[in-house]
Design a protein around this nucleic acid. Structure first.
Lengths: 199, 199, 199, 199
DNA sequence: GATGAATGAGGTTTCATTCAT
DNA sequence: CATGAATGAAACCTCATTCAT
């Protein structure tokens, strides 16, 4: 039943979606929807929550949350691949999170913001780990790292849309593009001609 | 009068915004809004158009469109600063463009897509110019560059939100963070400790 | 529910009638009206259709459609009586057909025109039959007959209004008046003093 | 200015007509219309009144109001011809009277009813004169004559519509058709084959 | 005196939400 | 328990009507 809701909400938006259409697509009657989930607002919140949990779980699973042995860049690469794969496999869920929930009033936007914060925090920890491994001396400040993490997450979101609307772009390719961009930087890329960190 | 519309549309979204609220905020009566702009759809289209024009103009003005003598990284830095400054000064306009217009039906999404394409194309041309200046041999493919441009634009959009919601983050700082991220790459940063291209 | 609509449409006209008033008179709420009949236009169309069908059915039933043994003048007399009785019993339906539908846009006017054509055609066939029975030699042309039929129908419509607004005029009396007028002609009447075809 | 109003009211109806369109067609501004005629209601009333006066005047002039020397049937024929000619020459005015005013609420319907009464009364007097001339014995009652007059007027109205919508039907032909019908009666016509009183 | 600019009131229509069955 | 039937509230839009210029 949530599947139907996610699909309709993702395609139409929160306001434009009608409970009628959701119930019809789910194959049940409207009052049943109200029985299980109290209101349109609760229904949408449940959708957002479910998709947020699924997305963060996918990313964490991909990046191998508690395995510090793997090199950081490898873990980042794996996390990005998982992210692109998940958004490609769940376009409606991704639409609910990235497009609709952020435009439909405070409560939903806050939920998505919290999810983003979680992912950004995860990315932040990866960057910090990498910096520690490199024994860098003049340390990046916490705010520096936060900004970098936000930039990386934003780049990933944008590439997800690009990959989902451009034919024949796979999750692997999107991840490779982003890794090259993010790890080596444009300055290096334009000098070396596009050879990325691992290739 | 468009100001009021941009504000309400940016905060509530296209569907949730009511002409009543817009008229009230503008200090006029509803029929007057319909006299000047024919319908809710036309009104929203006018808002989108105005904000899109203003944003692209600001970015181009900042990046110094027809001055090829300035180094590419400097022009990119200037364009980003202008972008962050503009979005910080026009949060509602930015919300209309980035959040609402893309989720409110084809005509509006297409308008924003065109604007994004314009900016992405501009960024692409900068990257190509940089690559040419570096006399790189194994050229980046067109698709590579497109992906990089999308990643950069997405990172900028994300940082704009971050800067607007985090206290005391200026446009200059956001631009510096993004330049470091984009130009040097995370790999370099974590090795060198955050010294950016010109820093 | 259609009853209420016919009453309000008949009294106020298509444009001046409000769905509010119709719903109120029907004792239901506005959305219910929209649930059963999709729009004001559809609702009016349904009213027109219903009244047109009812009127033609009444006239045909009165005139004894498939009984050619009865003399033509008798059948005409019966049809007129049925017509006057029906309009007297359904003044609002008659108003919808005769007054409102013809002034409320093409689709409705066309519907009524079709109904009128049907009745005129029926009358025409009666006249033709009468002429054939009389073995008349210099035949009436088709256009002659069409004109006569239109005149007869118009006279009937006018007498229906007269009968409905003048106290104590029955359908029988209206039919008798019209038959005398139509069959014998004024010239005969003023000579003979009002004795009709059958007395 | 009334010309424009009559044209718009006749084509659109009272409710559907907009003061905007009337003012535009008249080549003046809306407030000017309100200066000369106080409201939409007054404007429409003025149109109805003007057209009613014009029509009755035309009919009276045609029938030769105060000339009792001419035979009655001749006067009737002349009146009908005048009526058909006038409606053919003023289709919008005729539409205002016959279609719109009768469907737009009591005050206007009453005005038209009064006009009809006047014409019917005139016709009645003609019939009474004819009967008196014929020295008929068993007199027609007043109600009989009233009914006949209404029938004749209704037939004329219907034929006016028919003549205005059928190509190449002149006022003379319409009048001839109606006279044959009204004076001789169908019974005579079907026996004699369409030769009218003067034909 | 004529008008551009403005509005109050009301109309159709939709939709989230709830009872009685 | 699941549902068909029903509604309250609110949205977009129009138009007759009026001031300040």
């Amino acid at each position: 039943m949530l599947d139907a809701a996610v699909r309709v909400f993702g395609r139409r938006g929160y306001r434009a979606a009608s409970m009628e259409e959701i119930a019809e697509l789910a194959g049940v009657s409207k009052p049943l929807v109200y029985l299980y989930l109290n209101s349109k607002e609760d229904l949408f919140a449940a959708c957002v929550r479910r998709e947020a949990v699924a997305l963060t779980a996918a990313v964490r699973a991909g990046a191998g949350d508690p395995e510090p042995d793997v090199p950081v860049d490898r873990r980042l690469w794996a996390g990005l691949t998982a992210f692109f794969a998940h958004t490609a496999d769940n376009p409606d869920g991704w639409a609910v999170l990235h497009r609709q929930a952020r435009t439909s009033g405070e409560p939903f936007a806050a939920e998505v913001a919290a999810m983003r914060e979680e992912i950004t925090g995860f990315v932040t920890s990866l960057i910090v780990t990498a910096a520690r491994e490199a024994h860098q001396d003049p340390a990046l400040t916490a705010r520096d790292v936060a900004g970098l993490a936000h930039a990386l997450v934003g780049a990933a979101e944008s590439l997800a849309d690009w990959a989902n609307t451009t034919p024949d772009v796979t999750a692997r390719e999107a991840a490779r593009t982003l890794m090259r961009f993010a790890w080596s930087g444009l300055g290096t890329l334009v000098r070396d001609g596009g050879r990325g960190p691992r290739g």
